[in-house]
Design a protein around this nucleic acid. Structure first.
Length: 518
RNA sequence: GCCGCUAUCGUCUAGUGGUUAGGACGACAGGUUUUCAUCCUGUAAACCAGGGUUCGAUUCCCUGUAGCGGCACCA
């Protein structure tokens, strides 16, 4: 039988690393078993709609590589895939429950329910519906409904015995039936609640494995009972553990790395790294198939992932590990691939807007990255060979793609600017540095003027001058570094000069001397 | 408060009725290096507590504790 999985978000437009982790297993398993991955929009709460939320989410999922075989954007045989377009269906099944005495009309007002909850809380009881309308005579209830009295439909959950549910990750989960309340299935506005809609849709859409967050575990029995009421075969269920804030408290939130996918990608995390990291939260491959460095491609994840090795415990978000994984994926790229990815990143994520940008607050760094990219992208593209040669020197130094534009600036600028902190003045004053550079310049010209960059000659010149002036060699190299790159950390100098060419190096050194004497 | 779930280095995790409890990130210390990074080597670092069961429990059971989740006409 073909396996069918589904992601069932409500259309808030928000997609972050936690969401990715929640929906990735569906995608991976659908690919692994040749099944289908379905996107269904759960928009039964009419008070929480976001304009373009659906489009924004689809965009985010697909950008990180989670694609769907059916959904609002890709009609299949089980549509519509938006719950607000399926109201008649829920109505029909709610009626079926009513007819079979598995559900009843409830006329309790919100005020009464609120009061009820308050007293229950005050008495240290679990707040729950008390079954007030459970035994209203059916014909009387119907009359009240026909008279237009506001009502909901509640599930009549049996109050004796217990219910045992089976979960692929947690195993047996059992509850006393008397602990389960009569859940509202149809709201007064005619929309179903999640509980009815999810069961009906999963069944009708032929979902074979329903994967969702552990936050649904407590209402699992209600859903199991609903399947029983309808006489439907139960799909398999898997409840995924959550990703927690780095401090281990509460679900991942915005101020702790739950950045929207738009920002993750714009910052320059590769989609394969996003997947890799997301899956490593709460899952590990079989030891004999695991990689020592914990780096996995998408294809490998598809091959290796299975629900039976998913942890039961929540994992904390760890930015340092995510960074490690991203830099490892970057290093795996060839220079050709790396340069393509950078240019693609610049165009697709920096220069273009995500749909979700309409309603997510922009971070400060986004504007900065954009201004860099606007400036350098045309230059990169103008001479791709030059770009690749420069980029190769930064390949081992980059953690996220957004570091690239500023890292390569001295390859592209005609003039450098310095601050005092760009120089190592521990052992020598600025004017000493200027004097040294002035002495050095003609000697460098001597060996570099034909753009021939001989390592031995270069070392000899720099170290030779250092010896003459009685400087530490390192101080001399650092002076040259600051003069030619504008900073204290850079790729190896000679290799950089080889790309920049002597004229540029010379110009920078001359500018530096002027600046140092200012 | 009530209900449910869970518990291995700081973090992510592997693993077992008998192991020197393994790896990764991070930290620290060395090496390589003209800086930074890379790369290499090494060090520190864990089985929540108490009871059982057992010849033997980190592993199985119970209790406690802690954490997380849920307790809506939200999903």
């Amino acid at each position: 039988m073909q396996q069918r999985f589904r992601a069932a978000p409500s259309p808030t437009g928000k997609v972050h690393i936690g969401t990715i982790r929640a929906y990735l297993p569906n995608f991976l398993l659908a690919k692994k078993y040749g099944g289908k991955n379905i996107l269904r929009i759960e928009d039964t709460d009419q008070t929480r709609l976001v304009p373009n939320g659906v489009e924004a989410m689809i965009e985010a999922y697909e950008e990180v590589g989670i694609s769907f075989d059916e959904g609002p954007h890709k009609e299949g045989d089980f549509g519509p895939y938006i719950q607000s377009q399926r109201l008649d269906i829920y109505k029909k099944y709610a009626q079926e429950l009513l007819d079979n005495d598995y559900a009843y009309y409830c006329f309790c007002t919100k005020e009464r329910l609120e009061e009820l909850r308050e007293t229950q809380k005050a008495n240290k009881q679990k707040p729950r519906y008390d079954g007030f309308c459970r035994n209203i005579d059916k014909s009387e209830a119907l009359k009240r409904v026909n008279d237009g009295e506001a009502h909901v439909i509640r599930m009549k959950f049996p109050q004796e015995g217990g219910t045992v549910c089976h979960d692929l990750i947690f195993g047996k989960v059992s509850v006393k039936n008397s602990d389960v309340e009569d859940q509202v299935l149809m709201k007064a506005d005619g929309f179903p609640t999640y509980h009815l809609a999810v069961v009906v849709d999963d069944h009708l859409m032929g979902i074979t494995t329903a994967i969702r967050g552990v936050d649904w575990l407590p209402s699992f029995p209600k859903h199991v009972k609903l399947y029983e009421f309808f006489g439907w075969e139960l799909p398999k269920f898997a409840h995924l553990p959550l990703i927690l804030n780095p401090d281990g408290r509460k679900k991942l939130s915005k101020r702790h790395g739950a950045f929207p996918v738009s920002q993750i990608l714009r910052k320059g995390y590769l989609k394969e790294a996003v997947m890799n990291y997301a899956m490593l939260c709460g899952w590990s491959p079989k030891p004999e198939l695991a990689h020592q460095d914990e780096i996995y491609t998408v294809e490998e994840l598809i091959k290796l992932f299975d629900l039976d090795r998913v942890h039961k415990t929540a994992a904390r978000y760890d930015q340092a590990k995510f960074d490690y994984i991203n830099s490892k994926h970057i290093r795996r790229l060839t220079i050709d691939q790396f340069s393509e990815r950078i240019i693609d990143w610049a165009k697709r994520y920096v220069m273009r807007r995500f749909i979700s940008d309409e309603y997510t607050e922009a971070a400060e760094w986004e504007a900065e990255v954009k201004s860099f990219v606007e400036k350098y992208l045309p230059l990169w593209e103008k001479d791709l060979e030059y770009f690749k040669r420069a980029l190769a020197l930064e390949h081992e130094r980059i953690t996220v793609l957004s570091e690239v534009p500023s890292a390569l600036d001295f390859f592209y600028e005609k003039e450098l600017s310095w601050e005092d902190s760009d120089w190592n003045t521990k052992n020598h004053t600025k004017s000493e540095l200027a004097d040294a550079l002035e002495k050095l310049l003609p000697r460098l010209e001597e060996i570099f003027k034909g753009n021939q960059f001989d390592h031995e000659a270069w070392e000899k010149v720099v170290r030779g001058l250092a010896d003459e002036l009685n400087w530490k060699h390192g101080d001399m190299f650092m002076a040259v570094r600051s003069a030619t790159t504008g900073r204290l950390q850079s790729p190896p100098l000679l290799e950089s000069f080889e790309i920049m060419g002597w004229e540029k190096v010379k110009a920078f050194v001359e500018q530096a001397i002027v600046w140092l004497r200012k």
